[in-house]
Design a protein around this nucleic acid. Structure first.
Length: 468
RNA sequence: GGCGACGUGGCCAAGUGGCUAAGGCGAAGGUCUGCAAAACCUUUAUUCAUCGGUUCGAAUCCGAUCGUCGCCUCCA
C-alpha cells in the first residue's frame, strides 16, 4: 500500500509501527456551529481511508478529537447569552447526528479538550521545564526558535515567516512566531486552574496531549484538512516532539478543499452550505460518491448540479443491486455455471485503493464491473444463483464496506418485507388485466402505485418494481 | 514578498515516459414494451492551457509564457 506523506512530499510504502494494528488520529470539529459540506469532505474521506485499512485486515484504532473550548465557542456563548459548555454540548450532539446521517463510522474515541486538562497541563509543564515554553503574565508560549525542526512539515523556514507581514504582533511574545499553549482567562471567560493561574489551553495543545494519551507517543497516521498543515500540525509536532523526544507521526495525510464559486468554502467567507442542509436534498451516498469521484488530496469544486449528477450515477449502482437482489433470492440453483471473473474487478478496485486511496479509480472499477456483469447476465439468461450471490458480495465489499455508497445487505432485507409481497400481488392482478387486454385497469394500478412512490417496470421476464 | 497545488472531451474527473487517454453526468442511436417510464446495450478527446526543449517515444520529464486556486491570521 502506498500513502502520500505530506512530511516527505512523496508516496511511501505504508508500514505500521505494530502490524496489524494501526493508530489513526483525525482532527475533528470545533463545536461552535453545524459543520459544512467542506468539513464533511474531510470526515468522509478519513472514514473511507479507515474503512479501506479495515478491509485490508488492519486493526485500526481511530481517534477524532472534539475541540469543545476555544475563542469561537466563547464568542458564540456571549452572542447567545448562554454558558459556553451549553454551546459545545449542542453542537457535539448535532455533530453526531450529522455524521450518522452521512454514514460515517463512529470513531473508537472522541476525546474532548475539556476532559483532558491534566494531560494538557502536564505537557505544557514539561515544555516549560525544558525551556521550550515560557510564562508571560499567565500566558504560556512555545519558543519556536528552540525547536530545530520547526517548518519541516509545511516547508516554511522561520526567516521567511518573520518577513511575512501577516504574522501577528503580540507584546507578550518573545518572538512573533511563538504560539500560545495556555491562555490566561479574562474576566467572565470560562477557566481551568493551572500552575500558571486560571486559563484555558491553546488550540494546538489538546491534539498533542490527547493523541499521546489515546494512541501513544508515535502514531501511524494523522490526518486533517490542508489548512491545518500550518500552523496547527506544525505546532503539534513542535509540542509533541519537544515534550516526548520521539517522532510524533509517521504519515501525515491532508485533504484538499471544497471550493464554491472559485473560492475555498469557509465559515469566515460565508460561502458555505451546512452538511445538514445538503442532506435534506441529497442522499448520504450521493454526497459520498461525489467526494469519491475526486482524489482526496486535490481541490474539488462544489455545486448542486455536481451532487445531482452523482445522485444519478448512484442510481446505476442501486439499479444493479436491485437487479441482482431480485435474482439472488429467487434465482435457480440449477442454472448455467457462472464463469464471470469477479477477481479481476476486485483486484482492480483494491489496486486503486492501495495506491494512496485512489477512489476515482476504485469507483471506475465498480462501474466497469456493473457494466460487464449486466452484459454477462444478458448474454447468459439462465445463470444459476451463484453469479448473483457473488455479484452481491462484490458490491457489498467495495461500494458497501469500503466506500459506503451502497448497502446490499440492507436492500436485501427490505426485499423480504410484507409490503413487497403486497406489491407483487398487485402486479399479478395487473398482469391478468393485461392478458385480458384490460389496459385501463392495468394503467390504473400502475398509476396508483406510482402515486405512492412505487414505479413499475415491465420487461420480458415480467414486471419488477422500485420504491423511491 | 515566501511556500505550495493545479490547467485533460459540453460538465466533473483518473492517468505522471511506451498496449486502443479510466469512470460518472449530459447528448445521440438502439433493444425491450399494448403504450409509457425505467432499465440495459452502443457511440461520443489522433488529443491532454500555450510555446520551445530532452528522448527512438511525453498528457506524463525540463524551461518559458498565460491563467486559476490555496497557505503564510481562525479555518477541514
Amino acid at each position: 500500500m502506498l500513502v502520500y506523506n505530506t512530511l516527505t512530499r512523496k508516496k511511501e510504502e505504508f508500514k505500521p509501527i505494530n502490524p496489524p494494528n494501526v493508530t489513526m488520529y483525525v482532527c475533528g470539529p470545533t463545536v461552535y456551529d453545524y459543520f459544512h459540506i467542506g468539513n464533511a469532505r474531510s470526515f468522509i474521506m478519513a472514514d473511507i481511508i479507515r474503512r479501506h485499512l479495515i478491509f485490508k485486515e488492519y486493526n485500526v484504532t481511530f481517534v477524532m478529537n472534539l475541540t469543545d473550548i476555544d475563542d469561537k465557542i466563547i464568542n458564540k456563548s456571549i452572542e447567545e447569552k448562554i454558558d459556553s459548555s451549553k454551546v459545545s454540548q449542542k453542537y457535539v450532539a448535532s455533530f453526531f447526528e450529522d455524521i450518522e446521517k452521512l454514514k460515517i463510522k463512529k470513531a473508537d474515541v472522541y476525546p474532548k479538550a475539556t476532559e483532558h486538562m491534566d494531560e494538557i497541563i502536564s505537557l505544557i509543564k514539561n515544555l516549560e521545564e525544558k525551556k521550550l515554553a515560557y510564562n508571560s503574565d499567565g500566558n504560556l508560549f512555545f519558543r519556536v526558535k528552540e525547536f530545530k525542526n520547526y517548518g519541516l512539515l509545511s516547508g516554511k523556514n522561520t526567516d521567511d515567516l518573520e518577513l511575512g507581514s501577516r504574522v501577528e504582533v503580540n507584546e507578550q511574545k518573545e518572538n512573533p512566531l511563538d504560539f500560545s499553549l495556555w491562555k490566561k482567562a479574562k474576566a467572565g471567560e470560562p477557566y481551568w486552574d493551572s500552575p500558571w493561574g486560571k486559563g484555558r489551553p491553546g488550540w494546538h495543545t489538546e491534539c498533542s496531549a490527547m493523541s499521546v494519551k489515546h494512541l501513544g507517543k508515535t502514531i501511524d497516521i494523522h490526518a486533517g484538512g490542508n489548512d491545518l498543515i500550518f500552523p496547527h500540525h506544525e505546532n503539534e509536532i513542535a509540542q509533541s516532539e519537544g515534550c516526548f523526544e520521539s517522532k510524533f507521526v509517521n504519515y501525515w495525510m491532508h485533504f484538499g478543499f471544497l471550493n464554491f464559486q472559485d473560492e475555498k468554502m469557509s465559515k469566515s467567507l460565508g460561502n458555505f452550505f451546512t452538511a445538514r442542509d445538503i442532506l435534506k436534498k441529497y442522499s448520504a451516498e450521493a454526497i459520498r460518491l461525489f467526494f469519491c469521484q475526486t482524489h482526496y488530496s486535490g481541490p474539488l469544486a462544489f455545486s448542486e448540479e455536481l451532487i445531482a449528477s452523482s445522485e444519478k450515477g448512484l442510481e446505476k449502482i442501486s439499479n444493479f443491486v436491485e437487479f441482482i437482489n431480485s435474482k439472488s433470492s429467487y434465482g435457480e440453483s440449477e442454472g448455467v455455471e457462472c464463469s464471470f471473473d469477479f477477481d479481476f474487478f476486485l483486484s482492480r478496485f483494491v489496486t486503486a485503493m492501495d495506491d494512496d486511496f485512489n477512489t476515482p479509480q476504485a469507483v471506475a472499477a465498480i462501474f466497469n464491473f456493473i457494466k460487464s456483469a449486466n452484459k454477462y447476465a444478458v448474454e447468459n439468461p439462465k445463470l444459476n444463483s451463484d453469479f448473483f450471490v457473488k455479484a452481491g458480495e462484490f458490491i457489498q465489499k467495495t461500494a458497501g464496506d469500503v466506500l459506503g455508497i451502497a448497502d446490499f445487505k440492507q436492500t436485501n432485507k427490505i426485499d423480504q418485507t410484507l409490503s413487497h409481497d403486497l406489491v407483487n400481488l398487485l402486479i399479478e392482478i395487473r398482469q391478468k388485466a393485461k392478458v385480458e387486454k384490460n389496459y385501463s385497469l392495468a394503467d390504473e394500478i400502475r398509476d396508483k402505485l406510482n402515486s405512492f412512490g412505487i414505479s413499475l417496470k415491465d420487461s420480458k421476464e415480467g414486471t419488477t418494481f422500485k420504491i423511491s
